[in-house]
Design a protein around this nucleic acid. Structure first.
Lengths: 146, 146
DNA sequence: ACATAAATGCAACAATGTTGCAAATAATTG
DNA sequence: CAATTATTTGCAACATTGTTGCATTTATGT
């Protein structure tokens, strides 16, 4: 029997026990091809009428719950999505990295390699997750303005 | 002549060169009476039909620009507003404090006194502002569940 | 190939935020 | 204190983002 050819997206879905449907494969394909976190509006435009808006929202939610995607909010509170690192799973998200949000192009960068010190909370407050976002001018936009 | 009696809200507005209108005084009065950052929806409900929704949005924007209020986004990306510390002004916001967002009651706390270390960015990235938000369970909700 | 559980698409709605414009009002000037 | 003027407000209409219910379609296991 021939070895079955399957995309890495299909594998990813299988790994998380999700059925391989065209919307899901489409969405994954767009997201993995991008280096920065992607806003929902971008996906919506890119997908056109291949995927219903509601399906997009539901798919993003599912992916987030399964640990395939991280949701990151930009300075305007709009949702952006980025493919998780290998270490993520349904049960634990390793998204404790910082994000950089450019004021000019609005791009959201995931900066996995930047470390930051833990924060001490007052008595009685229990932390579940931490979110550090720096807004400013990104390398590309800084370069252009010179 | 009698010393003119004016509320601290009126003074605040005067200080920033804003006219003293009923909507503005109303909004300031609600915001200063609260210890946590206040969502727009709360203000809308509290104000009823005393203030138009559009006016509320415009007033919040004006206040933010003048350095009277800080806008803080909660984990859902909804805007919350808190009165600035004394040090803020139109030209510079001293909002480099962390926020705590409770997953149960959704309250947003401004934690002015908590310090955190500065973060080093990669070459070419210029920081304009930093936002550190921790989500978890706040003291009140933690207490209730025991 | 069939049965079935899951996923999709559609319609309708809800929440949040914005814009243009006419009417009202706060501050200023005489 | 009355008239003027620039600012602010309220209304209507619209834009964007996200959600829910339900009928139809499709992926998957047998």
């Amino acid at each position: 029997m021939m070895k079955e050819v399957r995309s890495k997206y299909a594998e990813l879905l299988e790994k998380h026990g999700l059925s391989k449907t065209p919307p899901r494969l489409n969405i994954l394909s767009i997201l993995t091809s991008r280096k920065v976190a992607t806003p929902e509006s971008y996906l919506e435009k890119k997908l056109g009428d291949r995927v219903d808006r509601v399906t997009l929202y539901r798919t993003l939610k599912t992916f987030e719950e399964k640990g395939i995607l991280h949701k990151v909010l930009d300075q305007k509170g709009t949702a952006n999505y980025a493919v998780c690192s290998e270490k993520c799973s349904e049960h634990r998200h390793y998204d404790e990295h910082m994000h950089f949000n450019c004021l000019v192009c609005n791009r959201v960068y995931c900066m996995d390699e930047i470390e930051f010190a833990p924060v001490k909370l007052p008595r009685g407050f229990k932390a579940k997750s931490i979110n550090l976002t720096i807004t400013g001018i990104c390398r590309q936009c800084e370069g252009k303005s010179r």
